[in-house]
Protein backbone atom coordinates (compact mmCIF):
# COMPACT_ATOMS: atom_id res chain seq x y z
CA UNK A 1 0.00 0.00 0.00
CA UNK A 2 2.77 2.38 0.99
CA UNK A 3 4.48 1.46 -2.26
CA UNK A 4 1.37 2.35 -4.23
CA UNK A 5 1.20 5.78 -2.58
CA UNK A 6 4.88 6.29 -3.17
CA UNK A 7 4.66 5.44 -6.85
CA UNK A 8 1.46 7.44 -7.27
CA UNK A 9 3.15 10.51 -5.81
CA UNK A 10 6.30 10.21 -7.85
CA UNK A 11 4.48 9.61 -11.14
CA UNK A 12 2.08 12.42 -10.29
CA UNK A 13 5.11 14.65 -9.73
CA UNK A 14 6.44 13.82 -13.17
CA UNK A 15 3.08 14.40 -14.83
CA UNK A 16 2.41 17.61 -12.92
CA UNK A 17 5.81 19.09 -13.76
CA UNK A 18 5.55 18.28 -17.45
CA UNK A 19 1.90 19.33 -17.64
CA UNK A 20 2.83 22.68 -16.12
CA UNK A 21 5.40 23.01 -18.86
CA UNK A 22 2.72 22.37 -21.46
CA UNK A 23 0.47 24.80 -19.63
CA UNK A 24 2.95 27.68 -19.84
CA UNK A 25 3.62 27.07 -23.53
CA UNK A 26 -0.07 26.91 -24.36
CA UNK A 27 -0.95 29.99 -22.31
CA UNK A 28 1.58 31.85 -24.41
CA UNK A 29 -0.04 30.46 -27.56
CA UNK A 30 2.33 27.67 -28.60
CA UNK A 31 1.24 24.03 -28.54
CA UNK A 32 4.21 22.07 -27.30
CA UNK A 33 3.88 18.55 -28.65
CA UNK A 34 7.62 18.11 -28.23
CA UNK A 35 7.44 17.69 -24.44
CA UNK A 36 8.33 14.04 -24.78
CA UNK A 37 11.59 14.93 -26.51
CA UNK A 38 12.29 17.71 -24.05
CA UNK A 39 11.88 15.21 -21.19
CA UNK A 40 14.38 12.86 -22.79
CA UNK A 41 16.94 15.61 -23.26
CA UNK A 42 16.36 16.94 -19.74
CA UNK A 43 16.84 13.43 -18.40
CA UNK A 44 20.00 13.12 -20.44
CA UNK A 45 21.35 16.32 -18.91
CA UNK A 46 20.62 15.11 -15.40
CA UNK A 47 21.97 11.63 -16.02
CA UNK A 48 25.21 12.95 -17.48
CA UNK A 49 25.62 15.22 -14.48
CA UNK A 50 25.16 12.24 -12.15
CA UNK A 51 27.75 10.35 -14.11
CA UNK A 52 30.34 13.10 -14.18
CA UNK A 53 29.73 14.82 -10.85
CA UNK A 54 32.69 14.28 -8.54
CA UNK A 55 32.17 11.54 -5.98
CA UNK A 56 31.35 12.49 -2.44
CA UNK A 57 30.26 16.09 -3.05
CA UNK A 58 27.34 15.48 -0.76
CA UNK A 59 23.66 15.04 -1.44
CA UNK A 60 22.52 18.64 -1.63
CA UNK A 61 25.11 19.94 -4.11
CA UNK A 62 24.53 16.86 -6.24
CA UNK A 63 20.77 17.41 -6.30
CA UNK A 64 21.25 21.04 -7.25
CA UNK A 65 23.74 20.22 -9.99
CA UNK A 66 21.52 17.52 -11.47
CA UNK A 67 18.49 19.78 -11.44
CA UNK A 68 20.41 22.63 -13.03
CA UNK A 69 21.77 20.32 -15.72
CA UNK A 70 18.28 18.97 -16.52
CA UNK A 71 16.87 22.49 -16.69
CA UNK A 72 19.67 23.80 -18.88
CA UNK A 73 19.31 20.90 -21.31
CA UNK A 74 15.52 21.19 -21.38
CA UNK A 75 15.53 24.94 -21.92
CA UNK A 76 18.17 24.71 -24.59
CA UNK A 77 16.29 21.97 -26.41
CA UNK A 78 12.97 23.79 -26.23
CA UNK A 79 14.57 26.72 -27.99
CA UNK A 80 14.53 24.56 -31.13
CA UNK A 81 10.75 24.66 -30.89
CA UNK A 82 10.82 28.39 -30.28
CA UNK A 83 12.95 29.19 -33.29
CA UNK A 84 10.86 27.10 -35.64
CA UNK A 85 7.40 27.94 -34.37
CA UNK A 86 7.72 31.54 -33.23
CA UNK A 87 10.27 33.04 -35.59
CA UNK A 88 9.73 30.89 -38.66
CA UNK A 89 6.03 30.16 -38.15
CA UNK A 90 6.54 26.46 -38.79
CA UNK A 91 3.74 23.96 -38.28
CA UNK A 92 3.77 23.28 -34.52
CA UNK A 93 2.60 19.68 -34.89
CA UNK A 94 5.39 18.69 -37.27
CA UNK A 95 8.08 20.42 -35.26
CA UNK A 96 6.83 18.93 -32.00
CA UNK A 97 6.84 15.45 -33.48
CA UNK A 98 10.29 15.99 -34.93
CA UNK A 99 11.56 17.06 -31.51
CA UNK A 100 10.24 13.87 -29.95
CA UNK A 101 12.01 11.71 -32.48
CA UNK A 102 15.11 13.85 -32.39
CA UNK A 103 15.24 13.72 -28.58
CA UNK A 104 15.40 9.95 -28.39
CA UNK A 105 17.72 9.62 -31.39
CA UNK A 106 20.12 12.31 -30.16
CA UNK A 107 20.19 10.98 -26.60
CA UNK A 108 20.87 7.47 -27.88
CA UNK A 109 23.66 8.60 -30.17
CA UNK A 110 25.28 10.72 -27.45
CA UNK A 111 25.09 8.10 -24.70
CA UNK A 112 26.30 5.35 -27.00
CA UNK A 113 29.19 7.51 -28.13
CA UNK A 114 30.15 8.16 -24.52
CA UNK A 115 29.81 4.52 -23.54
CA UNK A 116 31.73 3.27 -26.55
CA UNK A 117 34.47 5.82 -26.03
CA UNK A 118 34.90 4.62 -22.44
CA UNK A 119 34.78 0.95 -23.35
CA UNK A 120 34.75 -0.20 -27.00
CA UNK A 121 32.75 -3.31 -26.11
CA UNK A 122 29.96 -1.29 -24.52
CA UNK A 123 27.46 -0.43 -27.26
CA UNK A 124 24.50 0.09 -24.91
CA UNK A 125 22.66 3.37 -24.46
CA UNK A 126 22.40 2.95 -20.70
CA UNK A 127 23.58 5.23 -17.93
CA UNK A 128 23.75 3.88 -14.39
CA UNK A 129 23.34 5.99 -11.28
CA UNK A 130 22.81 3.57 -8.42
CA UNK A 131 24.62 5.61 -5.78
CA UNK A 132 23.65 9.04 -7.02
CA UNK A 133 19.99 8.11 -6.96
CA UNK A 134 20.17 7.61 -3.20
CA UNK A 135 20.82 11.31 -2.72
CA UNK A 136 17.32 12.06 -3.96
CA UNK A 137 15.59 9.75 -1.54
CA UNK A 138 14.73 10.09 2.10
CA UNK A 139 13.39 7.02 3.82
CA UNK A 140 10.55 7.86 6.17
CA UNK A 141 9.40 4.69 7.84
CA UNK A 142 9.43 2.55 4.73
CA UNK A 143 8.12 5.37 2.57
CA UNK A 144 10.73 6.56 0.12
CA UNK A 145 10.31 10.30 -0.08
CA UNK A 146 11.75 11.72 -3.27
CA UNK A 147 12.80 15.38 -3.28
CA UNK A 148 11.09 15.76 -6.61
CA UNK A 149 7.73 15.37 -4.89
CA UNK A 150 8.48 18.58 -3.05
CA UNK A 151 9.78 20.23 -6.21
CA UNK A 152 6.59 19.34 -8.07
CA UNK A 153 4.45 20.75 -5.26
CA UNK A 154 6.50 23.94 -5.27
CA UNK A 155 6.19 24.03 -9.06
CA UNK A 156 2.41 23.96 -8.85
CA UNK A 157 2.34 26.78 -6.31
CA UNK A 158 4.85 28.83 -8.29
CA UNK A 159 2.93 28.32 -11.51
CA UNK A 160 -0.28 29.46 -9.84
CA UNK A 161 1.32 32.59 -8.41
CA UNK A 162 3.12 33.46 -11.65
CA UNK A 163 0.08 33.01 -13.87
CA UNK A 164 -2.49 34.75 -11.71
CA UNK A 165 -0.65 37.16 -9.48
CA UNK A 166 2.07 38.70 -11.57
CA UNK A 167 2.40 41.13 -14.43
CA UNK A 168 4.28 38.49 -16.38
CA UNK A 169 1.45 35.96 -16.06
CA UNK A 170 -1.19 38.46 -17.16
CA UNK A 171 0.83 39.32 -20.24
CA UNK A 172 1.66 35.70 -21.01
CA UNK A 173 -1.98 34.63 -20.96
CA UNK A 174 -3.00 37.63 -23.05
CA UNK A 175 -0.62 36.41 -25.76
CA UNK A 176 -2.28 33.01 -25.82
CA UNK A 177 -5.80 34.39 -25.81
CA UNK A 178 -5.61 37.43 -28.04
CA UNK A 179 -2.11 38.26 -29.27
CA UNK A 180 -3.34 41.24 -31.29
CA UNK A 181 -4.72 42.79 -28.11
CA UNK A 182 -1.46 42.19 -26.31
CA UNK A 183 0.48 43.70 -29.18
CA UNK A 184 -1.72 46.79 -29.27
CA UNK A 185 -0.80 47.65 -25.69
CA UNK A 186 2.87 47.28 -26.45
CA UNK A 187 3.49 43.72 -25.23
CA UNK A 188 6.05 41.93 -27.38
CA UNK A 189 4.18 38.77 -28.36
CA UNK A 190 7.26 37.04 -29.72
CA UNK A 191 9.16 37.61 -26.48
CA UNK A 192 6.28 36.34 -24.36
CA UNK A 193 5.90 33.24 -26.51
CA UNK A 194 9.59 32.62 -26.23
CA UNK A 195 9.25 32.91 -22.48
CA UNK A 196 6.37 30.42 -22.52
CA UNK A 197 8.33 27.93 -24.60
CA UNK A 198 11.50 28.22 -22.53
CA UNK A 199 9.57 27.80 -19.28
CA UNK A 200 7.97 24.71 -20.75
CA UNK A 201 11.50 23.49 -21.51
CA UNK A 202 12.44 24.12 -17.89
CA UNK A 203 9.50 22.12 -16.54
CA UNK A 204 9.88 19.45 -19.23
CA UNK A 205 13.55 18.95 -18.38
CA UNK A 206 12.74 18.70 -14.67
CA UNK A 207 9.99 16.20 -15.42
CA UNK A 208 12.39 14.15 -17.51
CA UNK A 209 15.03 13.75 -14.83
CA UNK A 210 12.32 13.10 -12.28
CA UNK A 211 10.92 10.35 -14.51
CA UNK A 212 14.14 8.41 -14.88
CA UNK A 213 14.79 8.70 -11.14
CA UNK A 214 11.32 7.44 -10.28
CA UNK A 215 11.90 3.73 -10.34
CA UNK A 216 15.04 2.07 -11.52
CA UNK A 217 18.61 3.18 -11.03
CA UNK A 218 19.74 3.03 -14.64
CA UNK A 219 18.21 4.31 -17.81
CA UNK A 220 18.34 3.04 -21.37
CA UNK A 221 17.93 6.08 -23.56
CA UNK A 222 16.72 4.16 -26.58
CA UNK A 223 13.43 3.73 -24.74
CA UNK A 224 12.52 7.38 -24.48
CA UNK A 225 9.96 8.23 -21.82
CA UNK A 226 7.05 5.97 -22.84
CA UNK A 227 4.56 8.59 -23.90
CA UNK A 228 4.72 10.49 -20.61
CA UNK A 229 5.01 13.77 -22.47
CA UNK A 230 1.68 13.07 -24.11
CA UNK A 231 0.08 11.78 -20.91
CA UNK A 232 1.12 15.09 -19.41
CA UNK A 233 -0.67 16.94 -22.20
CA UNK A 234 -3.77 14.92 -21.39
CA UNK A 235 -3.34 15.87 -17.74
CA UNK A 236 -3.13 19.50 -18.80
CA UNK A 237 -6.34 19.27 -20.85
CA UNK A 238 -8.09 17.43 -18.02
CA UNK A 239 -6.79 20.13 -15.69
CA UNK A 240 -8.28 22.79 -17.95
CA UNK A 241 -4.98 24.67 -18.19
CA UNK A 242 -5.15 25.61 -14.50
CA UNK A 243 -2.22 24.70 -12.18
CA UNK A 244 -4.33 23.56 -9.23
CA UNK A 245 -6.55 21.34 -11.33
CA UNK A 246 -3.49 20.02 -13.14
CA UNK A 247 -2.14 18.85 -9.78
CA UNK A 248 -5.37 16.96 -9.09
CA UNK A 249 -5.42 15.42 -12.56
CA UNK A 250 -1.79 14.38 -12.20
CA UNK A 251 -2.61 12.50 -9.00
CA UNK A 252 -5.39 10.55 -10.72
CA UNK A 253 -3.24 9.61 -13.70
CA UNK A 254 -0.28 8.91 -11.46
CA UNK A 255 -2.36 6.43 -9.50
CA UNK A 256 -3.20 4.35 -12.56
CA UNK A 257 0.39 4.46 -13.75
CA UNK A 258 1.57 3.34 -10.33
CA UNK A 259 -0.90 0.47 -10.34
CA UNK A 260 0.86 -1.11 -13.32
CA UNK A 261 4.13 -1.01 -11.38
CA UNK A 262 2.93 -2.49 -8.14
CA UNK A 263 -0.18 -4.55 -8.86
CA UNK A 264 1.71 -7.75 -8.07
CA UNK A 265 2.02 -6.51 -4.51
CA UNK A 266 -1.72 -6.84 -4.01
CA UNK A 267 -2.83 -10.45 -3.61
CA UNK A 268 -6.39 -9.75 -4.67
CA UNK A 269 -5.23 -8.12 -7.91
CA UNK A 270 -2.87 -10.96 -8.63
CA UNK A 271 -5.69 -13.40 -7.98
CA UNK A 272 -7.69 -11.78 -10.77
CA UNK A 273 -5.03 -13.16 -13.08
CA UNK A 274 -5.09 -10.25 -15.49
CA UNK A 275 -2.07 -10.14 -17.80
CA UNK A 276 0.50 -7.47 -17.02
CA UNK A 277 -0.09 -5.91 -20.41
CA UNK A 278 -3.55 -4.84 -19.27
CA UNK A 279 -2.09 -2.90 -16.34
CA UNK A 280 0.48 -1.42 -18.67
CA UNK A 281 -2.27 -0.17 -20.94
CA UNK A 282 -4.35 1.19 -18.12
CA UNK A 283 -3.05 4.78 -17.95
CA UNK A 284 -3.44 5.19 -21.68
CA UNK A 285 -6.95 3.76 -21.74
CA UNK A 286 -8.02 5.94 -18.81
CA UNK A 287 -6.48 8.91 -20.57
CA UNK A 288 -8.50 8.26 -23.72
CA UNK A 289 -11.72 7.91 -21.78
CA UNK A 290 -11.07 11.06 -19.81
CA UNK A 291 -10.24 12.99 -22.97
CA UNK A 292 -13.38 11.73 -24.65
CA UNK A 293 -15.46 13.24 -21.87
CA UNK A 294 -13.53 16.46 -21.26
CA UNK A 295 -12.41 17.64 -24.69
CA UNK A 296 -15.79 18.78 -25.93
CA UNK A 297 -16.11 21.76 -23.63
CA UNK A 298 -12.46 22.46 -23.09
CA UNK A 299 -11.36 26.03 -22.58
CA UNK A 300 -8.07 26.03 -24.38
CA UNK A 301 -6.31 29.34 -24.89
CA UNK A 302 -8.01 30.76 -27.97
CA UNK A 303 -4.95 31.62 -30.03
CA UNK A 304 -2.93 28.49 -29.31
CA UNK A 305 -1.33 26.83 -32.28
CA UNK A 306 -1.71 29.89 -34.50
CA UNK A 307 1.62 31.46 -35.39
CA UNK A 308 1.56 35.17 -34.65
CA UNK A 309 2.21 37.35 -37.64
CA UNK A 310 2.67 41.04 -37.05
CA UNK A 311 1.53 41.76 -40.59
CA UNK A 312 -1.94 40.37 -39.94
CA UNK A 313 -3.17 42.64 -37.21
Amino acid sequence: MLLLIQYTLIFASVLALVALGGCFAEHSGVINLGLEGIMVIGALGGALMMRYAPDGIGAFPLIMLVIIAAIVFGVFYSSLLGVACINFKANQTIVGTALNMLGTAAATVIVKAINTAANPDDVSSTIQYVDEKKSFLVNIGGFEFNWFMLIAALGVVAAYVILYKTKFGLRLMACGEHPQAADSVGINVYKMRWAGVLISGLFGGLGGICYILSGVSEWKFENGVAGFGFLALAVMIFGQWKPTRIAMAALIFGFFRALSNVFFGFPFLVALNIPGSIYNMMPYVICLIVLAFTSKKSRAPKAEGIPYDKGQR
Binding site: A84, I94, V95, A105, A106
Partner: peptide, 9 residues
Protein backbone atom coordinates in the same frame (compact mmCIF):
# COMPACT_ATOMS: atom_id res chain seq x y z
CA UNK B 1 14.55 13.35 -37.19
CA UNK B 2 16.55 16.39 -38.23
CA UNK B 3 15.04 16.17 -41.69
CA UNK B 4 11.49 16.21 -40.26
CA UNK B 5 12.42 19.17 -38.10
CA UNK B 6 13.71 20.99 -41.15
CA UNK B 7 10.54 20.07 -43.05
CA UNK B 8 8.81 22.43 -40.65
CA UNK B 9 10.66 25.22 -42.43
Amino acid sequence: AIIIYLCGF
